[in-house]
Amino acid sequence: MTLMQTITEKARNLAVRSPWIYRINAGSCNGCDVECATTALIPRYDVERLGCQYCGSPRHADIVLITGPLTARIKDDVLRVFAEIPDPKVTVAVGVCPISGGIFRESYAVHAQVDQYLPVDVNVPGCPPRPQAIIEGVAQAIAIWRERI
């Protein structure tokens, strides 16, 4: 039993090294997506210092960034892709659109707020948020992810 616990503990310490990020665009205007790309690609901000890397497949992801107000057109696809991401996952809502709907709030064409459909963990408000604010949100998400794994 103790051996099993030790192995579990060791495996956990190994596993929490580098969370990979997957980005879902739920009908965003591209503003937040540009800021997300900036956060990762420009050496000035460089989210890879936190061990994060953007991955192309939802099946590799640990942290999910959601942008956009979840338009009616994209809703089913977003839910399907989100279901493909393995647990434990941490969801970060980037920008005011997924949090509250922002400028599109109460529109017939959007299903904001996203947390009605998906379990969101961290909110990063802003229109769009600064890259530093996204890094701040990702740092909070990593703290949650370490507890959850």
Partner: peptide, 14 residues
């Protein structure tokens, strides 16, 4: 002030 990232529990406290 742009330090506005918060856990979802504080959503309506913002």
């Amino acid at each position: 002030d742009w330090h506005m990232a918060h856990a979802v529990g504080e959503k309506y406290g913002m």
